[in-house]
Design a protein around this nucleic acid. Structure first.
Length: 531
DNA sequence: ATAGGGTTAG
């Protein structure tokens, strides 16, 4: 006969379980002492199995073994699904399972969903589609879990904001009985994701209180909108005000450093991850590979990649992108093959990197082969980025007819990047006719972009068509088109940042730089001739 | 018991 075992004893014992085997023993003990019949026991077992031991299937079996689960068990199960959605594939699958449970509740009518169930179901609905968010919104109104239930409202706010529906999100925010740091943060992230970084920053500055996720939201919002300098500035404020950055902060910042090419700050962040408790989880490691790669330190990126044992899809993608960026085309392709041998399924981003590698290496046939592989075997619907890569690939190789045929066969409308790639190649290969065609398409898409007119002038002047050049120059003087911003780039060498504008000769070593550029161009042409 | 923050891309 088992000794008496109170509920308190049971919970205490549960928290000392380190493995699923321990949990099963305790479960068995509960069955023997008939405690298993109590739904509070099952509730604790489900939560511990799923959240602490990350064993979702066991949690589900416990749930399924209960004849008429109460609302606590439903919400424990929904939390379990929400917590174990790490990869996007798992998210989809778990979202479907969560929604199936919700539908079961509605069908059976008992227990009805309550204010704890709605936020969990809404999180799953977000992963599926905004229509579902809307339906659940309606349902929550009918059930009376809408007015006055700020947590449900905040979940809805987040749901709409993830689909860029900021009007609806704003209404939900304005109708809250009491705003808090969570609802403010949800709104800030929403505006940032919708591309309204300015609105996001204004709201952030108005927030009555801020915590680490709130700072992360605005830093992420800046990086998502290309405001990398601002992201670094806000990070400095965050640290000055005594907040402790976590791994999310660090990965956002590494992204910003990579885009800016500021190795110095990137290394400081790396050092911070080392000293603090942030550590080297996948997001930080992937961010480091990307940052070092973009800042020119390919060796360091490769080294971090090699040392990291828990390589995920993004880890592989980051390295392939770095290699492509550095013109190491064969290595990028080799890493891609290695990745597939390891059984990691490539995604849309992988193929952008891979196609870029092919473009930079001039591997036209391989590039086309990988494009086919992506559409065929991997069943990935090509995005505009992939089309852009292929057009670039064909154009740089001078295969204009193939490029035009490819553009005409595209399933989506060609954008500025597609026509821009074509135009650039036409300029290099002096293909005037097709170049004019590309310019026309570009001006159709964006009549106010002065860059295109400058490109047209360049196209004519490099072909020696001076009369046309004069016409275009006159067109520019009419000021119908805004002023062209000069192209700008910068690089950090030996702790000093050197900045260059296009056509700029202000750098002290300008003459050497242009000489080296000429040498490189000549050497490249020679390689072309003898290839 | 429930809600907010994330990296890779021409």
């Amino acid at each position: 006969m088992a000794p008496p075992f109170s509920h308190g004893d049971f919970v205490a014992a549960l928290h000392r379980c380190a493995t699923l085997a321990h949990l099963k023993q305790l479960h068995a003990h509960a069955v023997v002492t008939t405690r298993a019949a109590a739904q509070t026991t099952t509730f604790h077992l489900i939560r511990f199995a799923s959240l602490r031991l990350t064993c979702l299937p066991y949690a589900r079996r416990l749930f399924d073994a209960t004849a008429s689960p109460n609302v606590f068990l439903y919400s424990a199960m929904l939390s379990a699904y929400a917590a174990s959605s790490s990869s996007s594939h798992a998210t989809q699958e778990h979202a479907r399972d969560s929604l199936a449970l919700f539908l079961r509740m509605l069908r059976r009518g008992r227990p009805g969903p309550n204010q704890f169930v709605y936020p969990l179901v809404l999180r799953a609905a977000c992963a599926v589609g905004v229509q579902l968010v809307r339906s659940i919104h309606c349902r929550s109104c009918k059930d009376g879990f809408y007015d006055g239930h700020d947590v449900v409202r905040t979940s809805l706010l987040d749901g709409y904001s993830r689909y860029g529906m900021m009007g609806d999100a704003r209404k939900l925010f304005d109708g809250l009985t009491k705003r808090n740091v969570v609802s403010w943060t949800a709104l800030v992230s929403g505006y940032a994701r919708a591309g309204k970084a300015g609105d996001a920053i204004v709201l952030f500055e108005r927030m009555p209180q801020r915590d680490v996720p709130a700072w992360n939201a605005i830093i992420a919002g800046c990086t998502q909108n290309g405001l990398f300098v601002e992201a670094v500035g806000i990070f400095k404020r965050m640290v000055d005000e005594g907040f402790r950055p976590n791994s999310t902060t660090v990965s956002c910042l590494l992204s910003a450093c990579g885009h800016l090419g500021v190795l110095k700050i990137g290394k400081v962040i790396h050092g911070y991850a080392w000293r603090s408790s942030v550590g080297f989880g996948s997001s930080v490691v992937n961010g480091l590979i990307d940052m070092y790669g973009k800042c020119g330190n390919l060796m360091e990126a490769q080294w971090i990649f090699d040392e990291y044992s828990d390589k995920g899809l993004t880890t592989w993608n980051s390295l392939i992108n770095c290699l492509a960026l550095h013109g190491r085309s064969e290595s990028a392709i080799a890493v891609f093959n290695e990745m597939r041998n390891e059984g990691v399924q490539p995604d849309v981003v992988t193929f952008v990197g891979l196609l870029n590698a092919c473009t930079h290496g001039g591997f036209v046939d391989e590039g086309m082969k990988y494009f086919e592989l992506m559409c065929g075997e991997h069943e990935i619907e090509p995005q505009i980025e992939h089309y852009g890569c292929v057009v670039d690939l064909l154009c740089r190789a001078g295969q204009f007819q193939d490029a035009m045929n490819f553009i005409n066969d595209m399933k989506i409308k060609p954008d500025e990047v597609i026509w821009g790639s074509l135009l650039n190649a036409c300029r290099i290969h002096r293909h005037l006719e097709l170049g004019e065609h590309a310019i026309r398409k570009l001006l159709d898409l964006n009549p106010n972009n002065a860059n295109y007119v400058v490109m047209l002038a360049n196209l004519y002047s490099e072909g020696g068509f001076w009369e046309e050049v004069r016409k275009v120059r006159n067109l520019m003087k009419e000021d119908v088109i805004g002023k062209k911003l000069p192209g700008c780039s910068w690089i950090e060498v030996n702790r000093k940042t050197h900045r260059f504008y296009s056509g700029d000769d202000g750098h002290p070593e300008s003459e050497d730089i242009y000489n080296t550029l000429d040498e490189l161009a000549t050497s490249m042409e020679m390689q072309d001739i003898f290839a």
